[in-house]
């Protein structure tokens, strides 16, 4: 634990996820065509990283990224995460990354965070930042579960945060109210798109990002107990896109009013519009 008022040791959990906007279903199986998928940094994790950078700018410190990955993500994404302000990136390859089981993900991530803090960075984390959810599975569970596994305070859906001495102050916007919470560090905070607007990195940061360390941990190095605990609680039966066959229907009629009336009737009978 860092001394009050001194520099912050921040870990940001980052998910390299499929870009769902560019994901197409396989026409034969309706399952997502992962073979042709494009990858991206989970958007809320970009908010988490940006928030970490802002805290570092104000208080000083060091930011490391930790990512549980099924396999090595495209290197340009790793460079982008480093360019955005990470001092180092730790990749933890594990098949569970694809399981979609937030309990397993959080258990391994927490074990990795402990290991990285104790063995590699030789700090105990002041702050762990996560995105509110990930844009592919959208469970929103990993952050709080990591906090639980680490035994630290979770603050979810924070829209503003700052650190004063050894206290974190976070605002959470809840409809018409702003909920202000304080906690003594260490804490885990989840943030989303309302928290900040991530800035674009400087061109030189991108070109030089490859010089920053990327460390690949094996889960074998993590505590045995952690992996034993990380037994799946969910079984993923399948992911399929809803059928959306094109109807190619031409609605005819006498003049625009008549066509509009017929179109509305058709949409209602198809169940696309309610009365």
């Amino acid at each position: 634990m860092t001394e009050a008022g001194s520099e912050l040791a921040i870990a940001v959990c980052i998910k390299f996820t499929v870009d769902v906007n560019r994901l197409r279903p396989d026409p034969a199986t309706a399952a997502p065509d992962l073979g042709h998928a494009h990858y991206r940094i989970n958007d809320f994790d970009e908010n988490a990283l940006e928030e970490a950078v802002r805290l570092k700018e104000r208080h000083g410190g060091r930011i490391v990224g930790v990512s549980l990955v099924e396999r090595e993500p495209p290197r340009e994404l790793l460079l982008r995460a480093l360019a955005a302000g990470l001092d180092a990136l730790y990749l933890v390859p594990h098949a569970a990354a694809a399981s979609g089981d937030a309990f397993v993900t959080a258990t391994i991530l927490a074990a990795a965070l402990e290991e990285i803090g104790a063995v590699y960075e030789m700090v105990s984390w002041d702050l762990v930042l996560c995105g509110d959810a990930s844009c592919d599975t959208y469970d929103g569970q990993v952050g709080p579960r990591v906090a639980e596994a680490l035994g630290i305070v979770p603050i979810t859906y924070a829209t503003r945060l700052d650190v004063r001495d050894d206290t974190i102050v976070a605002e959470r916007t809840i409809e018409d109210y702003v909920h202000v919470v304080e906690a003594t560090l260490p804490a885990l905070v989840t943030v989303g798109s309302e928290t900040n607007k991530p800035r674009l990195p400087h061109l030189r940061q991108i070109m030089d990002a490859g010089r920053k360390p990327i460390v690949r941990l094996t889960t074998a190095g993590l505590g045995r107990g952690a992996l034993d605990r990380a037994r799946a609680t969910l079984e993923l039966l399948g992911v399929t896109a809803p059928p959306s066959a094109r109807r190619r229907m031409v609605v005819g009629g006498n003049g625009p009013d008549d066509v509009a009336r017929k179109l509305v009737r058709q949409l209602q009978s198809d169940g696309e519009l309610t009365q």
């Binding site: 495209p74 340009e76 790793l78 674009l200 061109l203 991108i206 070109m207 990002a209 490859g210």
Partner: peptide, 17 residues
């Protein structure tokens, strides 16, 4: 190269946003 792809993305985001 990965650097060029990251650079391309930066330029694309600058242009679009």
């Amino acid at each position: 190269t990965p650097e060029q792809k990251a650079l391309q993305k930066l330029a694309r985001e600058f242009a679009q946003d």
